[in-house]
Amino acid sequence: MIECKNLTKIYGSGDTKTYALRDVSFSIKKGEFVSIIGPSGSGKSTLMHILGALDTPTNGEYSLDGHEVSALEDDELSDLRRNKIGFIFQSFNLLPRTTVLRNVMLPLLYSDLSSTEREKRARECLKYAGMEEKLFQNLSNQLSGGQMQRVAIARALINNPSIILADEPTGNLDTKTSHLVMDALQELNQKGHTIILITHEMDVADYANRIIHIRDGMVEKDVVNNPHDRSINFTF
């Protein structure tokens, strides 16, 4: 499903040339829950941008669902992001002063769906992400952090994407809410969604079935993980 071959990303040129990624290769199968973990500066953000089709590699190949991404034009990348990838950001990135429903429907803008169909889908996704129905018409800035991230998850799901890409989804949340959001992601994975999680926290990465460690722009190790039972692991 995801095929990365010798991904290399170089910033700058000449003397200031820095390698953000060097020859990174791995593949991810449908239905996997993969954590990409590494300290800051390890290149995991760059990797996430390339996997999310927000950026293209300097060298190497990246294919998603059989599409070669590294050769696409700007508009084709936009279409790919809209149809194949659901984003969950650290800072939620919801439109302020905008209702929950509108936020979730945003990726459907300029699509051929009717507005009733869009709203129907948005409601389904919100329920799926565990949002209470009475909050659907609330403005996004009236929500708590956990609620905001659930709205963001619903937004990521709306186009029924091939992969869900979560970039430090718990970075702005307290520990308790973090675990609630991670539980929600784990549940999505159990329902069949492919999830790629980028984080620098081990106990967040621990929710995944596979952990790819990145250091200095290279894959340090790629290990199978047995997610711990959360009820036992609550130690705070």
Binding site: I85, F87, N93, L106, P107, Y110
Partner: peptide, 16 residues
């Protein structure tokens, strides 16, 4: 600008 970034990231074409 952030709003524009978000719109781009979730796949809305530049022209729109």
């Amino acid at each position: 600008t952030r709003e524009i970034g978000l719109r781009k990231a979730i796949g809305i074409r530049k022209i729109y």
